[in-house]
Structures are given as structure tokens and as C-alpha cells.
Design a protein around this nucleic acid. Structure first.
Lengths: 154, 154
DNA sequence: CAAATAAAAGATATTAAGGTCTTCTATACT
DNA sequence: AGTATAGAAGACCTTAATATCTTTTATTTG
């Protein structure tokens, strides 16, 4: 474990940033009060310009909304709030995570499964199904609920 | 989806190679007939020297065995056959995949869950449990079974 | 013991992800 | 209209993963 080590993390850093940013936008912004990339980068401890790129990409793909100029920033439209988490992952990391073979075999499929196919697919499809039905808005509600619970004295 | 794209794959390429190699060794080698890195690289279509490094790392960590010299190569000892798949992933990619937060938050835990914690942990732990109880030997048996099934005429 | 073989080791190259900086453009407000 | 603000865009740099090449060491076999 000296030289070789990838620290595989399932989602790329870009994608992790994207998800954290979207949650932040959902929580901190409203149609009257937008949230800037600057502020977001500081609060989330993400390099500003790198975050900007990610936000732009999400914006271009209509997953979040933005306005330029003074008091500009990012926010979620009604439509954006219904965007599901799998879409964000798909836009940033591509569809590979939920479709590609765990062993990277192009020929692997349910008809010609690799040795790990069955083990992996169950896990993957389950998560995919949840994420496909989990909207940005719902995700923040979950968070608020969890926060409330964890602040309850035991 | 133009410039930014990570093609996240859950397991690093090194790790995918490692798993494919281990399966290959389990299937093709015996205590009398070892399998060389050369042959393995050709059969599995993996860069030879890169594969060698991975095999060395597995060998150093006692997950596979090797002997040098003519007719040398890699094989699985009795102990190696009982090695579980999670160990291979751990040695190559580190323990992160099964412990780190999906969003990359260091503070995330079941006590202080991130918004995706519950969604991710259930499936992750499920897969981990399976891999932790799946030995190299068992994995090849699964493969053989699947091959047999897929060769059965419908 | 010499020659051949094959893994081990390590230096080096390539590529892609991650991160930074500068310039440009749209918008709001005076 | 002019100026300040903040996102958009793109060039550029750094680091880590991936890949290649060369040398060394251990082992077998004649």
C-alpha cells in the first residue's frame, strides 16, 4: 500500500462538490435572495473557480438557475426543485457509474455477467432507484429532519 | 458534459485489473502449473508492467503467491483461496470506498449524517458484507456456474 | 556453475483530474 | 449612460493515476 493507491470514492470530487453545492443552494437561496459562487465557495470550503465551473455546467444543463450582475447568484426554480439527484451525477460524472461493469469489462451484461455482476448490480440498481426518485428539494427536507433528530437530547 | 467529466467507476482501474487477475489466476493456475505475468497480461489485455506492479502488491500483502525463475509465476495457496474480495479492494484502493462519505465530508457519520448518508450506507454495507464473505475460490465457482448457464441453449 | 527465465524494483513518461488565474459579458443600480 | 457586481468562458498550471521501460534479483535447469 505504498505507491499504488487510488482512494476510489465512487463519486468524483467534482460530483461531490456539485451535490454539496446544490444542497446548499436549496437551503440558503430563495427567489428573492440568491446565493453567490463566492459565498458558496467559502461556506463549503471548495475552490471558488473550480466550483464556478461545476455550477456553470449544472446551469447549462438546466439543473440549477442563475442570474448575473449585482445581487446575482444561483437559485432553484420550481422545475429545478424537482430535478433528481441521479441527474446531477449523470451530468457531472457521466452515466457510467450506474451502467458500467464493476470490473470495467465492456462485454459484461446480465446475459454475459462478470464474476461480480450479480453482487454489484443489486447494490447499484437499488441506490440508483432511490436517487432517481429523490429530488433536490426532498434531499434538503431529509437533511433538516436529520439535523432536528440529532439535536434532540438523548 | 463537454470538458468536465470523470467517468467515475466505483473501483479504480488498478483495482479492476487486480480483481480480473485474481480470478484468472484462480482459474488457470494450479500448484503444479503457475501462470506468468506475461501470459496473464496478454489474455486479460492489461499492460504487462502495470499488471506486474499490481500483482507484486497483492503478493506482498499475501493475497496471492509467486515464485521466481523458470516456470515461475503466480498461484493461489490454500490460504490465498480463502482470501475475500474486500481485502483485494482494500489493498489496492484503500478502505475509503466502504467507509468514506459519498459526498466526501469528513464529518459525516451516522451521528451526523450527510443528506445522502442513509441512502448510500444501506446499499454500501450490503455490498461490503457480501464481498467480505466472498472468497476468491467462491468467486470462480460463481463464474463457472454462470458460464454453464449462459451456454445452456434456450 | 552457467544460462535462461521470470518476478521484483525503480525510474521515467503520459494522460486525466483537479485546481488557479485572467478576461469577457450580462445585469442592476445610481 | 456609467460603474460596479457577479457569473461565463477559456487559458493555464499542478498533481495523481495510469502506463512504459530498464535494471536487478532470485530461482530453476542443464
Amino acid at each position: 500500500m505504498l505507491t499504488l493507491q487510488s482512494e476510489s470514492h465512487m463519486l468524483s470530487k467534482s460530483c461531490q462538490y456539485a451535490l454539496r453545492a446544490v444542497v446548499y443552494i436549496a437551503e440558503e437561496s430563495s427567489t428573492t435572495q440568491l446565493v453567490g459562487a463566492q459565498q458558496m465557495a467559502e461556506s463549503l470550503q471548495i475552490p471558488k473557480h473550480f466550483l464556478s465551473k461545476i455550477l456553470q455546467q449544472l446551469s447549462r444543463n438546466k439543473l440549477i438557475s442563475s442570474t448575473k450582475g449585482p445581487n446575482g447568484g444561483f437559485y432553484l426554480s420550481r422545475e429545478n426543485e424537482q430535478v433528481t439527484i441521479d441527474r446531477i451525477i449523470e451530468v457531472i460524472d457521466g452515466p457510467g457509474l450506474f451502467t458500467a461493469c464493476v470490473l470495467g469489462l465492456p462485454s459484461c451484461s446480465s446475459a454475459h455477467p462478470c464474476p461480480l455482476h450479480e453482487q454489484a448490480v443489486g447494490y447499484r440498481d437499488g441506490l440508483y432507484h432511490k436517487l432517481k426518485n429523490l429530488t433536490i428539494r426532498e434531499l434538503t427536507l431529509v437533511t433538516r429532519l436529520e439535523k432536528k433528530e440529532s439535536s434532540t437530547p438523548k
